[in-house]
Design a protein around this nucleic acid. Structure first.
Lengths: 209, 209
DNA sequence: ACTCTTGTTGATCGGATGATCTATAAAAAA
DNA sequence: TTTTTTATAGATCATCCGATCAACAAGAGT
């Protein structure tokens, strides 16, 4: 009972870390923690995981809400701030190549347990950051994809925003069913993504070299 | 302050309902309530909505967990128990017509605020019912769709289960983005669905009359 | 009217949870 | 070593939440 009740990380010893380092450690664990149990997860359990007292958390974050915002920031930041808009509209490259590059990279970024779950939790909670992210995604990714497709689409069929959402949703759903619903992941996601893109392009008569 | 604090439904008066009726009333409101605030919503708030004391809830459900199971049952039941397997495999009807009929009906059933959100909440919580539902969906809907598509697919390309998931996910994502993320719904979902199905069928060279 | 059944209320309990405060000790400064 | 700083622990508070229980009253039967 004595040794068994010891802390996970550093058994019993009181480690004194520089604030910046400790803060980072807390946020990192908080991301994993809240992604697993949901945003209502309690601070005591989180503290236990860190091998630290619950009160310590409130030295770094005045309220739990403030901690959650740090979690949001950590998770959301850098996930959509890139040169994609430029690369997606670079017409010297075939649209198929561009789409493939984007969704390969993007899926690598978002098909990640913590991100997928926190995004869904915060989406259900109606978090403002969620709406901003999706708005940004629409402006910076989906709209350009629509314009680029329209530019090279042959035949009478012209793509609408709904078609882009369908392409996007079909791909993102891979992450949802694996990380939210816990279903087995496809063995070769790249192939699945490529297939989705080809299906999309073929439908609008895009045939490139 | 006096009249303002009155209950929503029946101002102040203590209404005595037959147990069956009261139970149904509780479950109905619980579905709406938990769909909105999440499964951690507290019983006091729910009771307030019902214009009833919190303790009354525990006369009808021994624990909150039991109430939640009643909510699950109410929401899940009848959402996938139909003659779809038979209709989906009826080869006297063009596959496109079958798929269109299925997804039109199915989307009408699941693109519903309460269902979508409770499904997502319970999915994140890892509820057993969720897994059973998806397993059932795979066996009863997706597998048949795969078999039917393979039967009429022309050309070298043969569909895999991943392709069916892509079709399904692309359509279901409409409900996710509207009811979970709170984005505006498409004006004509039927057209969007039809477009998704046509894109899918065209990719596997299915061309029927 | 009267009695009986039981649906409903109001008060309350035990535990959990966010947050606060003081004492301690680890690391840096002298 | 001694002093100073402050990161950390431990105890505690106020509130919230699920659950319990005794008392009350609405409606049915007589």
């Amino acid at each position: 009972m004595d040794i068994a009740t010891e802390r996970d990380g550093d058994a019993g010893t009181r480690r004194r870390l520089p604030p910046q380092e400790r803060r980072e450690q807390i946020v990192n664990e908080a991301v994993r923690f809240f992604a697993e149990v949901g945003l209502e997860g309690n601070t005591r359990q989180l503290a236990k995981r860190l091998g630290v007292t619950q009160s310590l958390l409130f030295k770094y974050f005045a309220t739990k809400e403030e901690l959650l915002e740090a979690v949001y920031e950590k998770v959301y930041l850098g996930r959509l701030s890139s040169d994609w808009p430029d690369r997606l509209t670079d017409r010297s490259v075939p649209l198929r190549t561009r789409l493939l590059a984007f969704y390969t990279e993007y899926s690598r970024l978002i098909f990640e347990h913590d991100w997928m779950r926190i995004f869904m939790f915060s989406g259900l909670a109606g978090a403002a950051l969620n709406h901003r992210y999706l708005e940004h995604l629409g402006d910076v990714i989906l709209e350009p994809v629509l314009a680029e497709t329209a530019a090279v689409a042959s035949g009478t069929r012209q793509p609408s925003m709904e078609d882009i959402w369908n392409l996007h949703g079909g791909i993102v759903y891979i992450g949802i069913r694996t990380h939210i619903y816990g279903l087995p992941a496809p063995e070769h996601p790249e192939e699945v993504i490529a297939s989705a893109i080809d299906k999309y392009l073929a439908y609008f008569g895009v045939s490139e070299i």
